[in-house]
Design a protein around this nucleic acid. Structure first.
Lengths: 248, 248
DNA sequence: CCTCTCGGTGAACAGTTGTTAGCCGAAAGG
DNA sequence: CCTTTCGGCTAACAACTGTTCACCGAGAGG
């Protein structure tokens, strides 16, 4: 509308004149401090969106749960005004869903890398555990979020996480099938076993992450325990006999 | 002090007179509605303390996490004024600790009952699973709290829960030892395996409790999966060979 | 019987929360 | 060049939070 446009232009000019007269150099607001390098609008938007996600994760670093975070708290940590939040997410739940998806991508990457590396020559389980441990440490915030909200968050978040975890287990089962380890097992059984393995992995991850940052003694014990548990599971798996179907 | 006493007595009388004149029968306040039967002060105190604990649990019933509960919210649900909270707990964290302990007692009861019942004649695992499932349903609020705050709550709460869970696993290991199932295994190995079993139990419990209240199909699948997973673990356990010590 | 104890209460506090409505100005685009 | 878009902003809102202080009155206890 021409009227509104006119009005706005006028107001704008008024403000500019005021500033010029008063010599204020238009104090920089939060977001302007970063992002001098980025130019296109889309890039900037993506940037602050990431800031929000990242800030939420970082706030959980000291052992707080996502559910206990407030919208304002997150925007504050992201260096953005509360109302800007709504430009990116409808809700804190929606932000959580975005985080779940990010984590899902991360998890898939773990599997993909494992696939490419192939079966390690000796001591498969211990080797895998070390890789996994490294992975958990590299993505501690995401894993922490996943493990923490798995049973804690809102039903919506729980559902999303459950889906992601199941997906992960399925993919793992397929890998095992293709690598032809455990050839005697049906796909359903593989799936069941991978579910068990994934749960054990997540529990171990939570244990790792709860550790105070340098306690190599306890850490060593946790790793050892984790290795042994996986050994028990896979030992059981190799000995497994598929039950015969009741009737044709 | 005589002075204060006097002052208070006067005020009290004033109020009583006012009430009498105005014919108000001193509207009953929250707590008075129950507890007509209890007499001693200690009993009443214990009673509202329980109300607080119970209310906290009940608020979590619809999938909310304990961490997201407010002090006022709990007192409101308990039919008590917010300030009364401090007569019983210093903190929401302290209330949580009380809940953890309650749950611990409950868990120990589960083991004790299992012990008294002895080893079921046939199909040990499936039998135990059914008992466990019943138990989880009977104490769903406590179990929900435990499983939910296990990784979600404040560090303090997490610690307490971890301790309780470990204790449970240890006791379970001792039972297995005494029943002389798995006689080939060392105590340390038994402990490790029980840790795995307990984790699996808690995961299964969370799955049960997340189920919408009547979905017998999925529920059946969950139970089946749970049974199979335990079978894998115990199959692995029976086949386990203790590693020979490196050096004397 | 009088006094003290103590679990309950009401009123008030400063602070924080999620959300709305509207303004601003650089980038996008004709 | 002028207009539109839109991601940031300010200001304000009612609602709610945890915590304090003093008060009350039934029960405990001499």
């Amino acid at each position: 509308m021409t009227y509104r446009s006119h009005k706005r232009t006028v107001k704008r000019l008024v403000k500019r004149v005021r500033r010029t007269l008063a010599q204020e150099p238009a104090a920089p607001t939060g977001a302007e401090l970063f992002e001098h390098t980025l130019v296109t609008r889309a890039e900037r938007k993506q940037r602050t969106r990431n800031h929000l996600l990242e800030s939420a994760l970082r706030l959980m670093e000291e052992g707080r749960s996502f559910t206990s975070l407030g919208l304002r708290e997150v925007t504050r940590a992201a260096g953005v005004v509360p109302t800007s939040f709504y430009r990116h997410f409808e809700d804190m739940d929606q932000l959580a869903l975005a985080l779940v998806e990010e984590t899902g991508v991360t998890l898939r990457r773990l599997l993909r890398e494992a696939r490419q590396a192939g079966v390690p020559p000796i001591n498969i389980i211990r080797h895998s555990v070390m890789i996994y441990k490294q992975f958990v440490e590299d993505h501690r915030l995401h894993i922490m979020f996943m493990a923490g909200e798995r049973w804690g968050g809102s039903p919506l978040i729980r559902r999303a996480i459950r889906y992601e975890v199941q997906h992960f287990a399925t993919e793992m089962a397929q890998d095992l099938r293709e690598l032809n380890l455990l050839p005697a097992l049906s796909m359903a059984t593989l799936q069941m076993i991978c579910g068990l393995v994934v749960n054990t992995m997540l529990n171990a991850a939570s244990d790792f992450l709860d550790l105070s940052p340098d306690q190599p003694r306890v850490e060593q014990e946790l790793v050892e325990n984790f290795v042994l548990q996986l050994r028990v599971i896979f030992l059981g798996a190799t000995q497994w006999k598929e039950p015969v179907a009741a009737k044709p």
